[in-house]
Amino acid sequence: MIDGARPRHGIAGLRRTYLSLGTGELAAVVVFVVVQPMVAGRLDDAGGRALWWAMAPLLVILLQGSAYWLLARTWLPGAGRPGMPRGVALLYQAFRLLDPVLLAACLAGLLLTGPGPGALVLCLLVWAFGVLEYVNYFVVRLSYPMTQWFTRVGRRRTPVLVRDVARASS
Rank of each mutant, 00 (worst) to 15 (best):
D3V: 00
D3F: 01
A5S: 15
A5T: 11
R8E: 13
R8P: 09
R8V: 13
H9L: 15
G10H: 10
G10C: 10
A12C: 00
A12W: 04
L14W: 01
R15N: 07
T17A: 15
Y18W: 14
Y18R: 09
L19K: 03
G22H: 07
G24H: 02
E25P: 00
E25M: 03
E25S: 08
L26A: 15
L26S: 13
L26P: 01
A27H: 09
A28V: 12
V29M: 04
V30F: 14
V33W: 11
V35C: 10
Q36M: 13
Q36C: 10
P37I: 08
P37S: 08
M38H: 14
V39A: 07
D45G: 08
D45H: 13
A46R: 15
G48P: 07
R49A: 15
R49L: 14
R49H: 13
L51F: 06
A54W: 09
A56I: 10
V60R: 02
I61L: 13
L62A: 12
G65K: 02
S66R: 07
Y68R: 02
Y68K: 03
W69E: 00
W69D: 00
W69K: 02
W69Q: 02
L76F: 04
P77T: 06
A79G: 09
A79M: 09
G80H: 04
R81K: 11
R81G: 01
R81M: 13
M84P: 01
V88P: 00
L90G: 12
L90H: 13
L91K: 09
D99A: 15
P100I: 13
L102W: 06
L107R: 13
T113E: 15
P115L: 11
P115Y: 10
P115W: 08
P117S: 12
G118D: 03
A119R: 01
A119G: 04
A119T: 03
L120N: 08
L120P: 04
L120I: 03
V121R: 08
L124C: 06
L124S: 00
V126S: 01
W127N: 00
A128R: 12
F129Y: 14
V131R: 02
V131A: 14
L132H: 01
L132E: 01
Y134M: 03
Y134K: 00
V135F: 05
N136V: 05
Y137P: 01
F138D: 08
V139T: 09
S143L: 15
M146T: 08
T147N: 11
T147D: 11
W149C: 00
W149P: 00
R152H: 06
V153K: 12
G154E: 03
R156C: 12
P159H: 00
V162F: 02
V162D: 05
R163S: 08
V165K: 03
R167F: 06
R167N: 06
S169T: 10
S169R: 10
